[in-house]
């Protein structure tokens, strides 16, 4: 299965496209497309302006991001793996 992801225009945060054609920061709310339909959905997203920057397709399985780019997409989804205390502390009060 595939999903469409992008970065949010205002702040660059990772977002995913929903069934309704909106954008969400939660992968669980993302629309999932069979590979054959994904290109059409992506073309639609690429034709829209205002919310998302650089939409593209990612591979998914039941556990989350899959395929050759699974690590990159897992990091986009969950944040840096650096685990430093200052990042964790700052996340708690993130804007």
């Amino acid at each position: 299965m595939k999903a469409i992801t992008a970065n949010r225009l205002t702040d660059g945060r990772v977002i995913y496209r929903t069934e309704q054609g909106h954008w969400t920061p939660h992968l669980a709310e993302a629309a999932r497309y069979p590979a054959d339909d994904a290109g059409t959905a992506l073309a639609l997203a690429e034709g829209e302006f205002g919310v998302a920057v650089g939409p593209y397709l990612i591979d998914l399985d039941d556990a989350g991001p899959a395929g050759q780019k699974w690590r990159r997409e897992s990091i986009r989804l969950a944040g840096p793996t650096t685990g430093t205390t200052h990042v964790l502390a700052a996340d708690a009060g993130a804007r």
Partner: peptide, 27 residues
């Protein structure tokens, strides 16, 4: 860029000239 008068293709070289990249999670 926010109100749609500039596309990302038009805006990208302008933001880069001001040190603004778009990375994995954010600018």
């Amino acid at each position: 860029r926010m109100d749609g008068r500039l596309t990302e293709d038009e805006f990208k070289p302008l933001r880069l000239m001001n040190g603004v990249y778009l990375q994995l999670h954010a600018y």
